[in-house]
Amino acid sequence: MQPVATTFFFYFLSAVTVISGLLVITRRNAVHSALALILALIGQAGLYLMLYAPFVAGVQIILYAGGIMVLFLFVIMLVSIEQSLKEEQFSKLWVVGLVSALALGGLFVAVYLKGKGIFPERVMIPPETSNTQEIANYLYGNYMFAFEIASLLLLVAIIGAVVMAKKRI
């Protein structure tokens, strides 16, 4: 199926992502920030869908929006909101922030102005119906070793968390 109204959806999803991203850093209430972050992640999932990557979009929703953010909320909910509202929350490193923001903005502008040569003219659009299978082939075929190393890393992290949390095993 051909996508429809692509321009509209691109700008809509980008606006959702950017605005909720701004809300994440400007809200004083941590739970509101977390909810805005979830909205930003869902907007990103929509952008992945527009890039013909349905599997990545689905995984984005399951892992980030559904799994990790629930754990975030879980922790934030246990923080006393009244106390944290009174405390000074914002970092004073605004000079560093300004410099890095300017650098990133400059990079964007440079790429926008001179980027034509960097990117290929046309991108091959993979068929949507076999997208998941393609990812599986790459993940378990070409990049098997990297995949296994990553899972080992996660296992180490889990064992480390258990060791740190439990005094006596």
Partner: peptide
Amino acid sequence: NIGVLFMLGVSSLSVLGVV
């Protein structure tokens, strides 16, 4: 193409509503 994954993902979002 990701039907089952989509369903599991979206229904896992309902936890957010409960929380």
